[in-house]
Design a protein around this nucleic acid. Structure first.
Length: 949
RNA sequence: GCCGAGGUGGCGAAAUUGGUAGACGCACCAGCCUUAGGAGCUGGCGGGAUCAAACCCAUGGAGGUUCAAGUCCUCUCCUCGGCACCA
């Protein structure tokens, strides 16, 4: 008789056993280092007061499974856990509950740890770290000192994002658009002293090194976006009557001849210097004041009309042609990007175009669009493309030439050298479609187009003009057609939404885009209206024109330096001392850590100063240099500081002499798999930045910290919303473990769907995973030892094949983080095993081993019940038998004209001719092939026979 | 607007190089078992048509390539995520 599956008893028992035997201790001795290593890392949690919900463990379960798998495959694994416990939420929790943050953090950690322990993870708790531990943040401060030493940390007085609700300055990364991402309050710009890290120095490397990382594309892309590298040129414009110049940044120096005005951001410092010559100063001031009042959101709202004011009296000189250009201030130019000023080229930039239209400024095209690829021996022709719009049903006139001649085109035609394009278009419309009465609306500049005229067998370069007409009425004249053209092409009106689909020709599509959609051409082409540069491609002209204008090529970034100081209590004190005589003096390394003092009130002062400023005993110190009176820096670090290097500390968590021993680091780094969600830009950029810095100063061995990133999809509540106390939809893992068991919870969370998919929690569905776990328990009673087996059935070929296939698939799936299909494969095998009267012991042992990473408690229970004394964790991973992953028989599908008509079974290894012959004899196939001529019969090895008739 | 990831049953989802679409699970239906409920077991479960079978349709939509398309190509619509007046 089988015993009951009592998950509570079993799970508790095995957790105790594991602990007792220190099963999950990371090997530390050097002789163990001969083995390959695998560092599996979770994004460590912030221990909030709310405790864990069922979404939290998802990533931990995955990393647990992966690391157990690697361990059984012979790797030394490092799989640690710790706490990211500094930061505003901890402080706010403490203020609200009137306890010291340190006490609150301790309490919350204890609760988190308790919850985690119920799930049966293989964490090595000897390596636990806590960012708020003085022994830990000593090294966070040490890194800051090194940054300071290398000139990568500096004090700045630039206006900073200030959250009035959180009472602190924030980095750009801490904003959600223009709001504080934590509390949703609109941030202000506030001038104040702050510490800033020069992350921009690393911008290029942070982008370039992404290429070699095994990370999800969207995370890499988010980082590229955030860093926002763009290559362009710095061009200086002389200002008439001033000795200084107006510097602009542009990515399109090739369009310099098309600049018709300049714009500077309203906040630009240059404006005050120009005051003496500006005759409408009042107007300028008013505009600037208005801009200040407007929130960022109002300024950047979509569909916002462009606004601006001309600086009457000041003129810039275009360095390439000495043209006098008016200067405007307008808020569509941002002060903090590039130089805060632009040259405007309305012909080739949609924003400048919009502004120019509104202020009636000249628009000069300097690039002639070129479409198609240049070919050999081109014949040159001039032509037109005429687009006729019928307002009544919003359709466009086209001619369908049939699939061979390019499908639908607008009306087109050759134009004699001196023929007026407008007249030509009118003539062609009449000749080809019969429509008589159309009104001209607009036309494009010339467009060059290279193509091969297949019907004539020649390559052509055409210079076309696009023209746009409105249909007046339906009056038509009979179409004259050559005899051989009749019926070959037909006139069709196509709907606006169908144009993209039907008009495939590049030239015609571009004409539509420019004329009908009103797009501004910003693509490639050849230079026109640009003096000696005419005729060059715009790409070639970029460098030449920059040089000619006396400018220089330059790369800019959207990424700003990292605002690193917070005016709050609960963070690492910035280890710096301000001395009146010596200035800013770093705290000597030997004096680290600068411990956070105890205070009566850790609430923000409201003055923009940290609460630390009020602790006189702490603030007042002697200057390390001159030993005179000095004051400590009272700002603290953001909570992203501790998390920017924690993964290194796990390698050597108790080291007193260095943040990590370099030899140990060499062995364990880099992190092989980093598991977590969110943080696509912030944490992962900051950590990469610090890591590269540590690499540069020789503190670590590799230049990237995380080789592979597995991005986790969140678990939402059943209502599809985020799981949160606020919505009252939180599911506590403790309850699930109590009711269904940790093993079931683990299986369920991995079976929910692809790991990277977000999915909604469904308590209803857990039962399936529980049934599966119970099924394994039941199957166990059928396991027969070798001796018993002799009495029972002979070995089942099919089952052996399936078993070996499953071993292979599980190994591959775990490596690829495809846990859902791994579980599905185990279920299939379990279903088959259940049908058997008796199960081979060796096979079941193998099954238990692959099941163990997913459900370690029940696996160890059954493992021991089979008579083993070892832990399954220390067992080797079962290898599949390559000779046994294929059935003796193969199933061949038979298709007739692409449709499946039958399947049949035949011995593997049967010759192609024989398989074909058999296929053709099947009655279901004969029915379709009967008395019809067979064109061919295709055989796809071991898969199918396809018959074409 | 730009970039990225997607769109397959009632639901979560599977599907080597193009090669039997919907594996596995949930829910649901029927039967067995049970005093009953639940659990368990057996069978069914994309849509249409039919007594039933043959058959027809079907992977957001439209075209295309191919003996063969969820998978490749062109276009288009929608959803989610990131950036967003970034010159």
């Amino acid at each position: 008789m089988t015993k009951e599956y009592d998950h509570k008893k079993i799970e508790q028992k095995w957790r105790r056993e594991w602990e007792k035997h220190e099963l999950y201790k990371t090997p530390a001795s050097p002789e163990d280092h001969g083995k390959p290593k695998c560092y599996v890392l979770d994004m460590f949690p912030f221990p909030s007061g709310e405790g864990l919900h069922v979404g939290h463990p998802k990533g931990y379960i995955a990393s647990d499974i992966y690391s157990r798998f690697k361990k059984m495959n012979g790797f030394n694994i490092l799989h640690p856990m710790g706490w990211d416990a500094f930061g505003l939420p901890a402080e706010q929790y403490a203020i609200k509950n009137k306890i010291h943050p340190r006490i609150a953090v301790e309490k919350n950690i204890a609760r988190f740890k308790e919850q985690l322990s119920l799930i049966g993870f293989n964490y090595d708790w000897d390596r636990e770290i806590n960012t708020t531990d003085t022994r830990y943040y000593k090294w966070t401060q040490w890194i800051f000192l090194k940054l300071l030493e290398k000139g990568l940390a500096y004090e700045s007085f630039e206006p900073v994002n200030w959250c009035p609700s959180c009472q602190t300055g924030l980095a750009n990364e801490d904003l959600d658009g223009t709001r504080c991402e934590r509390c949703g309050t609109e941030v202000e710009k506030r001038p104040m002293r702050q510490w800033v890290l020069k992350i921009t120095d690393y911008a290029d490397r942070l982008i370039a090194d992404l290429d070699d990382l095994n990370w999800p594309e969207h995370v890499k892309e988010a980082q590229r976006n955030w860093i926002g590298r763009s290559e362009g040129a710095l061009i200086s414009f002389q200002l008439i009557g001033f000795s200084f110049q107006l510097d602009v940044f542009t990515t399109r120096p090739d369009t310099l001849f098309g600049a018709t005005y300049c714009v500077v951001a309203p906040e630009h410092e240059l404006i005050d210097k120009l005051k003496s010559k500006i005759s409408n100063w009042d107007e300028v001031l008013t505009y600037r004041e208005d801009m200040k009042k407007k929130t960022e959101i109002e300024r950047t709202a979509e569909g916002m009309e462009k606004t601006g004011v001309k600086l009457v009296g000041v003129t810039a000189i275009n360095p390439v042609n000495n043209e006098k250009l008016p200067i405007f201030i307008a808020d569509y130019v941002l002060a903090h990007y590039g130089t805060g000023a632009i040259m405007a080229v309305p012909a080739h930039d949609s924003r400048d175009h919009e502004f120019a239209k509104k202020f009636d400024l000249p628009i000069r095209a300097v690039i002639e669009p070129v479409t198609g690829e240049k070919r050999e021996n081109e014949e040159f022709r001039k032509s037109i493309v005429a687009i006729v719009h019928n307002k009544k049903d919003d359709t466009f006139l086209s001619i369908n030439w049939g699939d061979k001649l390019g499908g639908n085109l607008f009306v087109g035609g050759g134009r004699e050298n001196d023929e007026d394009p407008l007249a030509c278009a009118g003539r062609e419309i009449g000749e080809e479609t019969g429509y008589k009465n159309v009104s001209f609306i607009s036309q494009t500049e010339s467009i060059h187009h290279h193509y091969r005229a297949h019907s004539k067998g020649v390559n052509r370069e055409i210079e076309a003009v696009g023209l746009y007409f409105e249909l007046d009425d339906n009056e038509q004249i009979p179409i004259k057609r050559e005899e051989d053209e009749k019926g070959k092409f037909t006139v069709e009106w196509i709907a606006r939404s169908e144009v993209g689909n039907k008009i495939k020709d590049e030239l015609h599509a571009l004409a539509f885009d420019l004329l009908v959609n009103g797009s501004v051409y910003s693509g490639a082409g050849i230079m026109i209206n640009s003096g000696k540069f005419d005729g060059m491609t715009n790409d070639e002209a970029k460098k030449d024109i920059t040089e000619f204008a006396g400018g220089q090529l330059k790369t800019t970034y959207k990424l700003r330096d990292w605002v690193f100081s917070r005016q709050r209590y609960w963070g690492e004190p910035i280890p710096v001392i301000h001395c009146e005589r010596c200035g800013t003096v770093p705290v000597p390394e030997k004096d680290l850590p600068v411990k956070l003092p105890d205070v009566d009130s850790y609430e923000p002062t409201g003055t923009g100063e940290s609460p630390l400023a009020n602790i006189r005993d702490w603030v007042n110190v002697k200057c390390p240099k001159c030993h005179g009176d000095a004051k400590r820096e009272t700002n603290t670090m953001p909570n992203w500081a501790g998390s920017s290097w924690y993964y290194l500390r796990y390698i050597d968590p108790r080291n007193q002499n260095a943040l990590v021993d370099k030899e140990k680091e060499k062995y364990w780094s880099p992190v092989d798999v980093y598991v977590g969600g969110d943080h696509a830009t912030r944490h992962l950029i900051y950590a990469r930045f610090w890591h590269k810095f540590l690499f540069d100063i020789g503190a670590v061995n590799y230049s990237e910290p995380f080789k592979r990133l597995e991005f986790l999809g969140v678990i939402l509540a059943e209502d599809g919303r985020k799981m949160s106390k606020r919505w009252g939809n939180v599911v506590n893992p403790d309850d699930i473990v109590e009711l269904y068991g940790a093993d079931t919870l683990r299986v369920y969370e991995m079976f929910m769907g692809p790991f990277e998919n977000a999915s909604a929690w469904k308590t209803e569905s857990i039962i399936g995973s529980r049934r599966f776990v119970e099924k394994i328990w039941r199957i166990f009673s059928k396991v027969k030892s070798e001796n018993e087996k002799l009495k029972t059935t002979i070995q089942n070929e099919k089952l052996t094949t399936l078993y070996n296939q499953t071993l292979k698939k599980i190994s591959e799936n775990i490596e690829d983080f495809k846990f859902n299909t791994a579980i599905s494969a185990m279920m299939i095998l379990a279903n088959e095993l259940e049908k058997e009267e008796s199960i081979d012991q060796e096979m079941f042992e193998g099954f238990l081993k692959i099941f163990a990473p997913f459900a370690p408690h029940i696996a160890d229970e059954l493992w021991h019940d089979m008579g083993h004394d070892s832990f399954i964790y220390n067992e080797p991973w079962p290898e599949y038998d390559a000779l046994k992953i294929q059935d003796e028989m193969m199933i061949i599908a038979v298709q007739v004209n692409g449709k499946l008509r039958a399947t049949f079974e035949i011995a593997r290894g049967t010759e192609e001719e024989e398989v074909k012959k058999q296929a053709l004899l099947i009655p279901e196939v004969l029915k379709w092939t009967d008395d019809k001529k067979m064109k061919k019969v295709i055989y796809v090895k071991e898969k199918l026979v396809s018959i074409v008739i």
